[in-house]
């Protein structure tokens, strides 16, 4: 290709002045990459055109620049508004955070008080439950003892020996239940007042006319289990010093009953 002729065709000037068609521009842009002389010619014309036009400038009206600068500032609001918005947001965020903190703290205090109160109520209920459980256990034990006593009393093999009060102890009453098979002895203190301090009731079996120790009567539920007595004609209760005696104090004879048959 004749580069010199191409350069001298006026295409360079047309291109720089913006008078070429799209096809002509595309062709020139391709050729200038291929031939440095074309690029140089373009550069040279651009430079001389710029120099020539700058040297013959016309002063614009004074208000034009101010109007332009005002317009571009409006077109470019990011610089001015950018710091304002985050600051407002920051304040709003901080205010919201403080409000949330106060609300949260108040709620926490409220819930803590509720918790404390409920916890106290729970502890009280727990103590009450333990007490009730203990009472229930003792009642159960007593009920079992009573049931056991009833079983004994209703057993046909068990003899019931009623022991009314002996003068001057009329009005007192106790009952002996004696199992003829096992020879176990039980006593029910029906109407025996609480023994005075330092004293204790003692049961005696009368065997061949002589009193035999059948055991001390303690506080018991229903029937009190006494010593095993193989044979006896009668039973009696005396009031003895605590711990019992080997021979009964007949001055303190309380009740007495004969064994029938």
């Amino acid at each position: 290709m004749d580069v010199k002729a191409y350069i001298e065709s006026g295409i360079i000037e047309s291109y720089v002045l913006g008078m070429t068609s799209a096809a002509e521009s595309a062709e020139l842009e391709q050729l200038k990459r291929q031939y440095p002389a074309i690029q140089e010619a373009i550069d040279a014309f651009e430079a001389s055109l710029e120099q020539s036009l700058l040297s013959d400038a016309k002063q614009p009206a004074a208000h034009v620049k101010a109007a332009i600068m005002r317009t571009i500032e409006l077109e470019n609001p990011a610089q001015k508004q950018a710091p304002v918005i985050p600051l407002t947001r920051l304040r709003l965020t901080a205010a919201a955070a403080i409000i949330l903190l106060v609300v949260s703290a108040t709620t926490n205090l409220y819930f803590y008080r509720q918790f404390k109160e409920v916890n106290q109520q729970y502890m009280a209920l727990l103590a009450e439950k333990i007490t009730l459980l203990a009472q229930q256990q003792s009642l159960q034990t007593r009920s079992l003892d009573l049931y056991e006593g009833m079983q004994i009393m209703s057993d046909p093999a068990v003899a019931k020996i009623s022991m009314p009060g002996i003068k001057p102890e009329e009005g007192k009453l106790a009952t002996v239940f004696w199992d003829r098979k096992t020879r176990d002895v039980y006593v029910l203190p029906n109407k025996l007042p609480q023994a005075a301090a330092g004293t204790q009731y003692q049961l005696w079996a009368i065997v061949d006319g002589k009193p035999v120790d059948a055991g001390l009567i303690d506080a018991c539920n229903g029937l009190c289990k006494m010593k095993n007595i193989p044979a006896a004609a009668a039973f009696a209760i005396t009031l003895e010093k605590t711990g019992g005696s080997s021979t009964p104090n007949l001055q303190q004879l309380q009740v007495m009953g004969q064994v029938n048959g």
Binding site: L53, L54, A57, K58, Q59, I72, N76, Q79
Partner: peptide, 23 residues
């Protein structure tokens, strides 16, 4: 980079030549 002082400089140096072509 949207530098306004440089744009002001551009205006000061080129507005006259551009006004000529507009006129």
């Amino acid at each position: 980079q949207r530098n306004q002082p440089v744009f002001s400089y551009l205006y000061d140096n080129y507005s006259g030549a551009l006004l000529s072509i507009i006129l």
